[in-house]
Each structure stands twice: as structure tokens, then as C-alpha cells.
Amino acid sequence: MTGLLQLVFDGVVVGAVLALAAAGVSLVYGGLRIINFAQGDYMTLGAYVALGVSSGLRLGMVAGVAAATLCTSAFAVVLEPVLWRPLRRARAGVLSLFVTAVGLSLVLRQGILFAAGGGFQQYRVDAYSAWQVSGLRFPTEEVVAGAAALAAILTLATLLSRTQLGKALRGLADSPELTAISGIDPDRLAVVVWALAGALAGLSGVLLALVETSFDTNLGWDQLLTVFCAVVLGGIGSTYGALIGGIVLGLVMELATWSGFAGGVPASYQLVVAFVALVAVLLVRPTGILGRSRIL
């Protein structure tokens, strides 16, 4: 029983962290029709920025997290006029946008490798500190990461449901043509979308690195599949859906390893479990949990 509770805890933490990245993918797809293949590498970028600030500059982990969020966001924003705006002007299709994102992902990942080198990295935190409560172990950084991720999720959800901007963003996902006639300046909107998506990726990346305790330049790339699964599971373009999808997926992946569940799936099959869960949901609900069905 304690084993199960431990898995629930782990699942929620990992799920919440992935949910952030998934929400970023969802925002970008919903608003700009870009399947951001580079989202994983944005996460890695965040993790390395935090490493530079917290360990390199010795400014501590809090500054590291803040820097990761801001720098990744800034990076994503800078690329908007440089990379995406001209493509939008040229009415590039989903494929051109996707291929550009693939190229960007390659450049970023190899660029980080080039700059930071291969090999595993760790933050300067005490990896062994943990709270023990009646047989359950709550490693400090997991608790902190989980709390930060949940706080960010709540903030994002509030932003989306309460503010005018959030409503506009959600509306976009259903009919992108609407922006053209709704009077919202598409360039400004794109900047906002990228700022949010970048911040979410950076934050998610540094938190993921904390949870995994050691990481390399494949940190985000390795999670890309899970992040995309979360997006589709929740319903593409639905940011709430992506948040829910991330947490559900985190839970499913951890709980599948529970020994009470048919002896437990080996940890190396967690990704397969995530994928099977995705296909199962899509068979029942082809639009994901919160996605809308196609309208003529």
C-alpha cells in the first residue's frame, strides 16, 4: 500500500512537470499551427541555463529556476520574428513549419552539446535530503519541483480562464481563422504564445532535471514522446487538456510499475505503457480527453 502511495506521489510530480511542457506545445499548436518539435530541446536549454546560473555563477537554485524560465522564454520570443514570422508571411503549411521545428531542434540540441559538452550534470543540491513519513520517502527536490509545477499549472489555468488574453488563446485553438477576423494582431499574439511556451518549457526542463537528479543534453529530447502523448491524450490545442493529459500520463506510467498491477511492468517499458494508454484513449475518444470534434 505504501508502495502504491509512493508511486502516486512520484507520478503526480513527474506528471505535473511534463504537463507544463505539454501545455507549451499545445499553446503553440493551437495558436500558430506549429508542431513544436523543439520543445524538448527548449526544456534542455532551460536545464542548462539553470546549471550555469546556479552552479557556474553560484547564485543558487532559486535564481537558476528563474533564469531558466526567463531565458528560455526570451530565446523563444527572439526566434519569433527571426524564424517564424517570415514563414507565416509566406503562408507556410504545417509541413514547412514542422520541418523548420525539426531543424531548430537539431541546431539547439547539437548547439547545447557543443557549448556544454556531453556527460552527465548535477545541480548543487543535496540529492539525499528527504522527508520520511510513515514509510514514504519524499525527496526534497521532488517535493519542491512538484510544488513549483503545480503552482505554475494553477497560475496558467487562472491566466487562461480569467484574462481576456487567455480566452483569446483558447478560442484560437478551435478556429485559427478567427484571429484574422477578430482584430487581434497576429504578430503580437505570436510573441505572447512563444513567451508563454518558452517559459513553460524552461521551467519544465529545470524541474525535470531536479527530479531526475542527473541529466545530459538529451534530457528534453528523451521526454518529447511523453510530452506529445500528453498533448494528444488531453486533446490537441486544448491547453487544459494538455495539463490534465500530462498528469494522467505521469500517474499511468508510475502506477504501471506497481507490483499489485499484474506484477508490475518493468520500468523500461514505461514509455510503451504511456503509448498504449494514449492509443486506448484515442480508440474510445478520437479527440482526446478535452479535444473538440471536427466541425465542417
Binding site: L83, P86, L87, A90, A92, G93, S96, L97, V99, T100, V102, G103, L104, S105, L106, V107, L108, R109, Q110, G111, L113, F114
Partner: peptide, 19 residues
């Protein structure tokens, strides 16, 4: 690393110049 970066950059340029 640089090799793959150049491949990536080539992809981006291609999409930009001759989609």
C-alpha cells in the same frame, strides 16, 4: 555536433528560401 547543426540549419534555410 557541428555536422548535425549544419544539417538543421540547412533545413531551416530550405524552408525559408524554397519551401
Amino acid at each position: 555536433y557541428l555536422q548535425l547543426m549544419i544539417v538543421g540549419a540547412a533545413l531551416i534555410l530550405l524552408m525559408r528560401l524554397r519551401p
